[in-house]
């Protein structure tokens, strides 16, 4: 075969046995998932992270009914005020209640975070796996397409999207997905290239399994670790990217807001009105930590050997 597969050619396997075993484990399905769930429940940090994320999502869903104020109602005479009994988290420079704005912002941020990441994940994992699995010319071509996407000037791309389609949340997901998936694809491809030449995959090929089945059953489950890790990191960075795009005019339209927008507005006046930065920043950080603990928990839970050590 040609160039790209050379990366593994010179590596005759020796720990293939263990790899093959883990591959078999995944294949066996149900018991693995049950085991994983039990292991996950034992991991307290992961559980706490999960609970936090679920309650946050629930809160976001019912925000319109429980928010103390409206997100756009201003009190210009009040202006930016520190946390008080009337405004628990204070108000922004236009006198709007920060708690309410964070609550409404979570609807946007969670939606963008999860949906855009899902788009990036779906494209990136499939693309990376296929590229790594096929190898050779196809891999070469697919990876050069990724290089091209990396290189195109992002801002021009955003400006064009905006001009052609106007302000649209769906577009925002697309734009973010388009930016985030290539990195995912590269990471997945690197892992798959390593896996591909291993015995359990070759055995699967010899058994006459279709490419589709090999990819879905053997390759993707075995690269879950890095995927989960990278995903938990992508979600918060996507939330921040949303703020940049919204500021340019592609996403959320003021007076509606998002965590990212609240944080960048807060950053402008961090010395004068620190609460405008601290509270949205805190919510984003907590979400990030929860995601990571949950992600680690999942990764450990899905890897049968990790817990044996």
């Amino acid at each position: 075969m040609s160039a790209a597969t050379e990366t593994v050619k010179s590596a005759p396997g020796s720990d293939e046995l263990s790899r093959a075993q883990s591959g078999m484990d995944v294949e066996q399905g149900t018991s693995l998932w049950t085991d994983a769930w039990i292991r996950l429940k034992r991991n307290r940090m992961a559980l706490a992270g999960g609970i936090f994320l679920v309650s946050l999502t629930l809160m976001a869903l019912v925000t319109p009914w429980i928010a103390p104020y409206t997100y756009e109602g201003q009190d210009l005479q009040l202006g930016a005020s520190a946390p008080s009994a009337a405004h628990w988290l204070g108000t922004d420079t236009l006198g709007r209640d920060l708690l309410t704005r964070i609550m409404y912002g979570s609807r946007i941020s969670l939606m963008v975070g999860f949906l855009a990441t899902a788009v990036a994940l779906l494209i990136g994992v499939l693309y990376g796996t296929i590229s790594g699995f096929l190898g050779g010319r196809a891999d070469m071509l697919m990876m050069r397409i990724v290089d091209t996407l990396y290189a195109l000037p992002f801002i021009i791309f955003v400006i064009l999207l905006m001009v052609i389609f106007g302000r649209n949340l769906l577009l925002l997901f697309m734009a973010i997905g388009a930016v985030e998936w290539p990195t995912m694809a590269r990471i997945v491809r690197g892992q798959v290239l390593n896996l591909r030449r291993q015995e359990f995959v070759e055995a699967a090929i010899a058994m006459g399994l279709s490419n589709r089945k090999i990819i879905l059953r053997h390759l993707i489950p075995n690269v879950l670790g890095p995927i989960i890790v990278y995903t938990t990191l992508t979600i918060p960075s996507v939330m921040l990217l949303e703020a940049f795009l919204s500021f340019l005019g592609l996403g959320v339209q003021p007076p509606m807001s998002s965590w990212g927008l609240l944080i960048s507005a807060g950053a402008e006046s961090m010395e004068e009105y620190p609460w405008l930065l601290i509270f949205p920043g805190l919510v984003l950080s907590l979400t990030l930590f929860s995601l990571n603990f949950l992600g680690d928990g999942l990764r450990d839970a899905l890897d049968p050997k990790a817990s044996k050590d």
Binding site: D15, L17, S18, G225, P226, V229, Y230, D300, A306
Partner: peptide, 23 residues
């Protein structure tokens, strides 16, 4: 610093994977 976080996460994950292996 932004990249440090990614690298920390990725290397922790990768290390765990390897440390659990037979070799």
């Amino acid at each position: 610093s932004g990249y440090a976080a990614y690298i920390a996460r990725l290397s922790r994950g990768g290390m765990l994977e390897i440390l659990s292996q037979d070799f």
